[in-house]
Design a protein around this nucleic acid. Sequence first.
DNA 1: TCTGGGGTCCTAGGACCC
DNA 2: TCTGGGGTCCTAGGACCC
Length: 426
Amino acid sequence: MSSNQYTKKIALIDCNSFYVSCERLFNPKIRKKPVVVLSNNDGCIISRSNEAKALGIKMGEPYFKEKDIIIKNNVQVFSSNYSLYGDISRRVMRTLKRFNSDIEVYSIDEAFLDLSNFSDDEIENVGNEIRSVVLKWTGIPTSIGIAKTKTLSKIANHIAKKKQSGVVSLIGIENIDPILEKVEINDVWGVGKQLTKFYHQNGIYNAKQLKNKPNTWIKKNSNVLSSRTAMELRGVTCINLETKSSKRKSCVVSRSFGQRVENFQELRGAIAGYSLNASEKIRSESLVAKSITIFIRTSPFQDLYGFYSNSKTIDFPIATNNSIEIVKAALNGLECIFKNGYRYQKAGVMLSRLSESTNNKNLFSSERDKKINSLMKCIDRTNYKYGRSTLSLASVGIYKRWSSKRQHYSKIDTADFYYLPTIKVI
DNA sequence: TCTGGGGTCCTAGGACCC
DNA sequence: TCTGGGGTCCTAGGACCC
C-alpha cells in the first residue's frame, strides 16, 4: 500500500564501473567496448565495463592472468589515473549535494544520501531524477538503492545494478523477506570471507536467514558488528550517516616497485619519497603525526628467494609534519629492518596517531621551528604550482628505477592544465 | 616475468595497578 | 601446602570496506 508518508530513507548512489566510466568520458571510441582499468603498477584488474565482465574477466584478478582473454577480445586496457578519477568524483558528489546536503561520501564512487524529506510516494521518481541529473552533468552512469537503513540501501543498490532502470527502492514494501531471500549472505555489506564461512557452517546462506536469526545468538557466536548488520536488515538503524567529514587517524603511502629492488640506496630513495608524500598529505590537512611505521617486504607469491617482511615503528618526541624530520626518522627505521640479499617488491610508510596541528606549540617551539614551517609551506606551494616533486630531498634520488609501472596511462587530467584534453580544429 | 593501495573498527591479550 | 580478582589502558593483528 503506498502512502504519502515521510519515513526514514537512505539512498546509496554508486557509480557504475567508475574508473572505466571516467576513461570513457574523454574517449568515445571505447564506449560499448570491453574496457578494464588496472591497479597501481599495472598489477590487478580493478574496474571492468559490462562488456569486460561478460567476457568472464574477474575483479581483482592479476592482469597477466587475464592477458590471453584481453588480447583475444581486443579489450581496452588503462593504467589507473587517480588524479582524473578524484576530480570526476568531486563533480559527482557536488551534484548529489544539490538534492540534500546530508550526504556521506563513502568512497571515491559512492555516497549515502538522506532522502527522508521526500514522501514515500515520490521517492522512486526522486531516485530516477538524481540518476539522470548526475548522468547529464557529469557523464557518469550510476545505480541507486533506497531503503530504511544503510545496509538495506546497499542491498537495494546491489539489485539496482542488474536493472535497466538503475533505481530500486525498498520503501513501502510490507514484507521484504522474499527479496532478502535472493541475496546471498556474502553479498551483504559487512559480511566478508571469514563471516561467510562462519554463517555457512551455521546454515545461514542468505540475507533473510541472517535477518531472522535471534540477536542473542549472533552476539554470542559472532560480535557486535554482526548483530548490527542483522538489526539493519530488520530496518533498525544502527549505522548512522556520517555527514561531517572527520579528520583521518592515519596516512599510508606505499607502492609496489616496477621492478624488484635489492639495493639499499634505492630502497632508501623509495622510502624517502613515500615519506615526503605522506608528510605533504598530512600538512595539507593541517595534521601532525606522533609516530611513523616503515615497512618493506618481498613478494608473497614467489618464495624462490625467500620471503621477508618486516616493519619498524618510531615515535616522535613531539608530533610533527616536518618533511625533513619525518624522512630522517623513516631512514633510521629502514636501517633497522633492511636485510641484504632479498629482492624487495614493496615498501611503505604510515604516519599514525594523527592530530590537528593547531596545538603543536610547546615549550621548545623556537625561531627555528617557525623557519622550518615556512620552508615547508614554501615547498608545498611550489610543488602545487609546478607539479609534484619539483622540490624534493636529495635522499629521494633522481633515477627512480623502483617507480611503478604505468604502461597504459591515458594522460588525461582534468585537474592539471597541461593534461587537459584538447580539441583539434581543422 | 607479471599479483594494488588506503582506510576503519573491534578484540584478545599483556602490562600494570590496587 | 595454600599463590586473588578486578579494573584500565594500550597495542598488534584480524576482518572488513572500497
